[in-house]
Amino acid sequence: MAKVKVRIPAPLQKITQNKQEVTCEAVNIKELIKDLEKQFPGIKARLLDENGKIRRFINFYVNDEDIRFLKHDETSLSEGAEVSIIPAIAGGCYGFD
């Protein structure tokens, strides 16, 4: 288990009680999303589609690397890593409410 910081984008901060940074413990991104859901119920449905895949307009970065070019949600996390969730944005629209 690695303790990591997770940056939450503005439209999801409603779910994280207005926190723009939260802490998770997880071995990889898949587990991190589970931990996020445990702490902030409802967040998973914003991040994943109905097939459980990360939505195509949302990226996860471990430090400065996009996990789509690593091992997707199997990308492992090391202690102290910084995870950023970055959605596409367009003038008031984030693609999820």
């Binding site: 439209p11 596409a88 003038g91 693609g95 409410d97």
Partner: peptide, 16 residues
């Protein structure tokens, strides 16, 4: 970002 959010998957937008 390969594709825009699909229509229908988005119940509403928030006035940012």
């Amino acid at each position: 970002f390969p594709e825009p959010p699909p229509i229908g998957a988005v119940p509403s937008c928030q006035e940012g």
